[in-house]
Amino acid sequence: MSEPRFASFKLVLLGESAVGKSSIVHRFVKNTFDDMRESTIGAAFLTQTISLPEVNTTIKFEIWDTAGQERYKSLAPMYYRNANAALCVYDITSKASFAKAQDWIKELNRQAPEGIVVALVGNKADLVDERQVDEADVESYLQDLRAQRGESAGDVIHLECSAKSGDGVLDIFNSIAQALPLEEPAAKSQQSKRVDLNRRQQTTLQLGCC
């Protein structure tokens, strides 16, 4: 097997206000959920590492969790500039938030760095009774999108999750990790490689599940 590798990626969360972006991040990073989470002002920053044993690699996510209000939109390019991955989050109980997530994907297609991994994430999956966004609608949207983007752009990941129950949250980040181009950034971040060993131990402890 090859030498253990360490890579660091910038990930940004986009989506309408109050769809649960911060809650997803907190579930992923701290495995907690808080009904009374303060609304994000500007943006928040957190990190989390996961390991991919099959390729002997540890991945660190530098997560930028942006504020969702429409008027912050002009700031978004600052956050997705240099980003390796973007989570466009909607709330499955709100059609409007799904439309907003589609807008974000459109903007990313136009302006984001080449090769950015995009995930379309439906949150609040625990609220099945209030569902407004059907899986079928999302699938048909994704088909159109794939045709539009073409093969070279890479697939758009789609998953649903519940930050409240924790269901599906880890899957999102694992799927993104799988889709990230490991060779290139790993080679770039030679510096980070040195701290690899300590890092990795820590990670395996944190995330026994992957």
Binding site: S17, A18, M36, R37, E38, S39, Q69
Partner: peptide, 11 residues
């Protein structure tokens, strides 16, 4: 937007 943020202010 205010309604969305009220319960998320200094909770």
């Amino acid at each position: 937007q205010i309604k969305l943020d009220l319960h998320r202010t200094l909770p």
